[in-house]
């Protein structure tokens, strides 16, 4: 084959192969409405939360924290609510699983922050797990709340007296929003309470969302 013929074959062939793979793995998913339809309880970010998301991006939080509870049993337990937490906050003793992440929760994320690496824990369900004071203390001095943590201290989000700046407040507002596009904490506790009211022992309590999500 002549050089010119080969060069033409190369360009045409490479372009065709690239188009083929891109079409099926990139374009076809765009037509899947479950990927762009918000979940029932999904809300767009408030101005403060959006500012917090920008700080999360600026500081590269997403390089060490993923935002996706993978569809694995162990992750629904790890990122769910333990008995102590439910008792302290809701007066109920139960293990409540976190639902695996669903596409509809991310519709307002632009850019997405799914992440790829967990130097620290996943944050997809962190909203509501700790109070604001804990979050601020943790950002200012991670080892004060979590001994052994290797997270850097974000001292520049606080003034010289250690008071949070607007940036720290926005960042915490964003963190508290994460995972709340599904009301899994409230619904999980409610379900446990219902069972208890009927005097039934919740054997393995599950949230509604977790049940729906199992493929």
């Amino acid at each position: 084959m002549k050089f010119e013929a080969k060069a033409v074959l190369l360009v045409v062939g490479v372009a065709a192969f690239m188009f083929l793979g891109t079409y099926f793995t990139m374009v076809v998913p765009l037509t899947d409405e479950t990927l762009y339809t918000p979940t029932k309880d999904a809300k767009a970010y408030t101005e403060l939360e959006l500012k917090g998301k920008q700080i999360y991006q600026r500081e590269g939080c997403w390089y060490c924290h993923t935002q996706q509870v993978r569809n694995l049993l162990e992750e629904t337990y790890r990122y769910g609510m333990g008995e102590e937490e439910t008792f302290k906050r809701f007066g109920v003793r139960a293990l409540i699983q976190a639902p695996p992440s669903q596409p509809g929760e991310y519709v307002y994320d632009k850019p997405h922050l799914l992440g790829t690496r967990r130097v620290g824990p996943d944050l997809a369900r962190v909203g509501g797990k700790y109070d604001n004071t804990w979050q601020l203390n943790h950002l200012r001095d991670p080892r004060s709340t979590s001994p052994g943590s290797i997270m850097p201290a974000y001292t520049w989000l606080f003034d010289q007296r250690g008071q949070p700046t607007q940036e720290a407040i926005a960042l915490v507002a964003y963190l508290q929003k994460l995972g709340t596009n599904i009301k899994w904490r409230e619904e999980g506790v409610e379900q446990v309470k219902k069972l208890q009211a009927k005097n039934l022992t919740p054997g393995e309590p599950r949230t509604l969302a977790a049940k729906e999500e199992q493929p």
């Binding site: 793995t25 669903q102 596409p103």
Partner: peptide, 22 residues
């Protein structure tokens, strides 16, 4: 030619078990 054909389909293996279609 196998590199040209096969690589482009792989992106989603970074989000296995994640919130993308099975």
């Amino acid at each position: 030619w196998t590199i040209a054909f096969l690589y482009i389909w792989n992106g989603a293996h970074h989000i296995i078990f994640g919130p993308i279609p099975t």
